[in-house]
Nucleic acid binder design. Structure first.
Lengths: 152, 152
DNA sequence: CGACTCTAGGTGCAGTATGCACATAGCATG
DNA sequence: CATGCTATGTGCATACTGCACCTAGAGTCG
């Protein structure tokens, strides 16, 4: 109750919300191109074509991904230089495009892991507040108090 | 899933990947409308207008959200019946649109929490495989084996 | 008062990500 | 060779987001 009505400080204050920390690129939010890290992880485990990668995705919990989305993501990551592909015949059926991860792909996978970790922490903060229940923030907004309440 | 070259079973097999579990709505992936749960959580803590909600978002780790995105999300959630709003004068400056969460909003917040939790588990599985390193999945796909390998 | 600035909210347009429906093409089997 | 399956790809529509820009009230100062 006390916080929302004293947020808009008098105009004499030099605007506390612009020059602080939202200028940093800050990986982790919003989650952009969130499918790619999982695809890249799959290919990093072993050379794989579309259906094998789909199996990895489902093993990771991504059930809702359609093949069209997966194929387009793969082509895009190849254009970006994170994957390479060759046509190889399978034991049955038409040839498959088999993908291999590149050095750039490994590098990008590492930064993706950093992003996903930051994203995970954001979700953890959600549950920190969510578990606190309504009004809990009026006294102790869990832990994010440090740089927010003080600066306004 | 462990042997990539024998995944495409002979055509006599009734195709293991279509009629199984991807038909369930399965919250948790892909992360759709991922900003809304955080906004809704903020409003559930206390009645709030745009800038206050922005502060909550930043406290939760969402630094990159622009006000235009936030305002549009708020209007959309009001149209969806999760929020209500009234115009109220502030201590200074023009009036603000102050949002309140509705019963439907509370319900939806709960299911959002379920979705976010599933999403978090997916990220955990990512790190389970990622830590295992290349080739690790050929033997023991770490831990996502439990409820996946058995049901195929 | 009139110009200016700040606050609060909103819109137009473009880019990206995705799903659904559909298309292409090779292989297999009768 | 007709049909069906495997494997990949495309067209179109939709959703979400950022960036640039707009509207409008409130306060300040000459």
């Amino acid at each position: 109750m006390n916080m929302p009505d004293q947020d808009a400080v008098p105009s004499s204050t030099p605007d506390p919300r612009e020059p602080i920390d939202e200028r940093e690129p800050l990986p982790g939010w919003p989650p952009r191109d969130i499918l790619a890290p999982f695809v890249l992880l799959a290919v990093s485990m072993e050379r794989a074509h579309g259906y094998v990668i789909e199996d990895y995705l489902r093993a990771l919990g991504l059930f809702g991904i359609t093949m069209s989305t997966l194929y387009r993501t793969l082509r895009q990551m190849e254009k970006d230089g994170f994957l390479e592909s060759t046509w190889e015949p399978g034991p049955t059926g038409p040839a498959r495009r088999v993908y291999t991860i590149t050095d750039a792909g490994h590098t990008w996978l590492e930064s993706s892991a950093t992003m996903l970790n930051a994203y995970r922490q954001t979700i953890d903060r959600f549950f920190g507040l969510y578990g606190a229940g309504p009004g809990a923030s009026r006294n102790q907004p869990t832990e994010p108090t440090d740089e927010k309440e003080t600066q306004r």
